[in-house]
């Protein structure tokens, strides 16, 4: 700390440039404690071999052992591997869920010639519903809002029948609608049941 004190004399001190890992966002030296150590290591090796050597060469690894006993080290490593496997399984499950989830575009008849379109399930693909609603509203020049449906899930209601256009938008991946596989999109038509006198 004495170094820092002496250098803070009169002039402004330039900030330290810290290299952050692209995979886990931690500073590089902390990758080993993250849940994706292997991936971090690989990406660094590809991006910047020099830095990789600094952190993962044999000498560096030796120096890192520090005061910890070998036993404790082995335990730590085991734990880390376990954690990594867990994180991987979690990511896998999330991906599977994402692949299985569907976006439902429903055309709801309001009265004979008028419709509203409800879009459900966008959030599973990491789309910000509010932003998507805004985009729809701007694109179609109609009202679009985020509402809760009967099951308490959030969906976007767009005024007017724009179901076809929305499917196109998703297919092209415009704006916030990026990365939704078109196979997962279903179009449904919903007519309210006719009442007796109708």
């Amino acid at each position: 700390m004495s170094e820092a004190e002496s250098s803070t004399a009169a002039q402004a001190v330039a900030p330290v440039q810290v290299h952050y890992c692209e995979v886990c966002t931690f500073p590089l030296e902390y990758c080993e404690f993250g849940s994706s150590f292997k991936k971090c290591k690989e990406s660094l090796q590809k991006e910047d071999p020099e830095l990789y050597d600094k952190y993962y060469s044999d000498e560096a690894l030796q120096a890192k052992l520090g005061t910890l006993s070998l036993e404790a080290q082995a335990k730590l490593e085991k734990e880390a591997a376990k954690k990594e496997a867990k994180a991987e399984a979690k990511a896998d499950a999330a991906l599977k869920k994402k692949l299985a989830s569907q976006v439902t575009i429903k055309r709801i008849e309001r009265n004979k010639r008028k419709h509203v379109t409800s879009v459900h399930g966008l959030e599973a693909f990491g789309v910000d519903l509010k932003k998507a609603a805004k985009q729809f509203a701007q694109k179609f020049a109609t009202g679009a809002s985020v509402t809760k449906n009967l099951q308490g899930q959030e969906e976007i209601i767009v005024q007017g029948d724009v179901s076809g256009e929305i499917v196109e938008l998703i297919e092209e991946g415009v704006g916030v609608l990026k990365g939704i596989p078109i196979d997962n999109v279903v179009e449904v038509e919903d007519k309210p049941k006719k009442k007796g006198g109708d």
Partner: peptide, 13 residues
């Protein structure tokens, strides 16, 4: 990280 001197230091093992 950018200005490590602004807070007093303690260290853990």
């Amino acid at each position: 990280h950018k200005y490590p001197f602004i807070l007093p230091k303690v260290g853990v093992d």
